[in-house]
Computed example of a mutant assay.
Amino acid sequence: MTTITRRNLLAASGTLAALSALPAARAATLPDLSGKSFLITGTSSGFGRIGAELYARRGARVFATMRNLPRPEAEELRRLARDEKLAITVLELDVLSDEMVARAVAEAERLNGGPLDVLVNNAGVVIGGPVEAHDLEATRLAFDTNVFGYQRTARAVLPGMRRRKSGLIVNISSQQGRVVMPAGGLYSASKFAVEAMSEQLAYELVPHGIDVVIIEPGGYPTEVGQNRAKYTQALRDRVTADVAGAYPEMVERMKAMRSARKGEIPPGMPDPVEVPTAIAEIAAMAPGTRPLRRAVHPGPKPQAEINRVSRESQLAWLGDGPYGPWVKDVLD
């Protein structure tokens, strides 16, 4: 029986084929998202692009945001929405800009006729190499995109969600938001920050009826690697001879980074559609029943034991204190 994969979703034009073409039994297992509105960052490729189409095909109204409009990816998505009568609106949003975030969220809320139901913080960057090689330009870009960008968009949607006493914020983290790999640059540092910020926010939003969920993907072949290769090579060109000599193998590997081509899933690699599928399942759950964290990968999940110990530690530390009800609401 045919199953949902990135391969059978990809059409020759590079856009995704209709989910309605799947067997009825398989399609019926996907959650109905009718009546929900999503704003997603970073929808030019990868999890964001796949998610925008998947949620819309399940009935959601989607505000797909990306930077640097006009661009071909935006026109592809708009054409797909017209051709298949999907409720997808493409908006320009660069998560590095306070002004652009505020403007895009305000426009999405205006078109939606009220506050948004779901924010998916997906835009991110990966820059490889040893930590010492990361100058402040690379460091600022990593944290401004992966951490401050999430905070900008969350603060933009939260006033409306708080007024309505409902909403869901989904923050894309990583396995490397809980475990550390040498030569990974400051990616883990930025995702550790996302994990902590998201968990604290989840506790604080309990009285407002708003859920926060952290998605922890493993390694997936997405086009984010194209930017990783670009940013890593640019950083490699700025590395001093002293630093290059101190970390010769890691610096050499910075030149060899390769990214997946559009629509390509190398043999043996997991399918990126698994991540937006998990998000769709979580969005369809009843408020207050959603998990704080969801690890998504068919292979090893090295963060699972860390997540378990962290949960137990938080409950033991705060469970009987003044914030105990909030912590238990999120973790239980």
Rank of each mutant, 00 (worst) to 15 (best):
T3S: 10
I4D: 00
L9M: 09
L10A: 08
L10E: 04
S13I: 02
L16D: 08
A17G: 08
A17D: 09
A18K: 11
L22T: 06
T29C: 06
L30A: 12
S37G: 08
I50M: 14
I50E: 12
G51S: 08
E53H: 03
Y55P: 00
R58L: 13
M66R: 07
P70K: 05
R71T: 13
P72R: 12
A74P: 14
E75K: 11
L77A: 05
R78C: 02
R79L: 07
R79C: 09
A81R: 13
L86V: 03
L86N: 04
A87N: 03
L91T: 00
L93T: 02
L93S: 03
D98S: 05
V105Q: 08
E107Q: 15
R110L: 06
N112D: 10
N112H: 09
G113Y: 01
P115C: 04
N121D: 10
V125W: 00
L136P: 02
E137K: 00
L141N: 06
A142W: 02
D144P: 07
V147K: 08
V147W: 07
R152K: 08
A154M: 08
R155W: 10
V157D: 05
L158R: 10
R163S: 12
G167A: 04
L168E: 02
N171F: 08
I172N: 15
S173D: 12
S173V: 00
S174W: 10
G177L: 07
R178I: 00
Y187T: 07
A189F: 05
A196I: 07
E204C: 12
E204V: 11
I210Y: 15
D211V: 00
D211H: 13
V212E: 14
G225P: 01
G225T: 03
N227W: 04
K230L: 00
T232Q: 10
T240E: 01
D242N: 05
V243T: 14
G245E: 03
A246K: 15
Y247D: 00
E249Y: 03
E252R: 14
R253Y: 05
K255D: 11
K255G: 13
R261E: 14
E264C: 13
E264I: 09
I265F: 01
P267L: 04
G268A: 01
G268V: 07
M269Q: 11
D271L: 09
V273I: 13
P276A: 10
T277I: 05
I279M: 09
A280V: 01
E281V: 09
A283H: 13
P298D: 02
G299Y: 14
P302Y: 12
P302C: 08
E312D: 12
A316K: 15
L318P: 05
G319Y: 09
G319V: 05
P322K: 13
P322E: 12
W326K: 11
V327A: 11
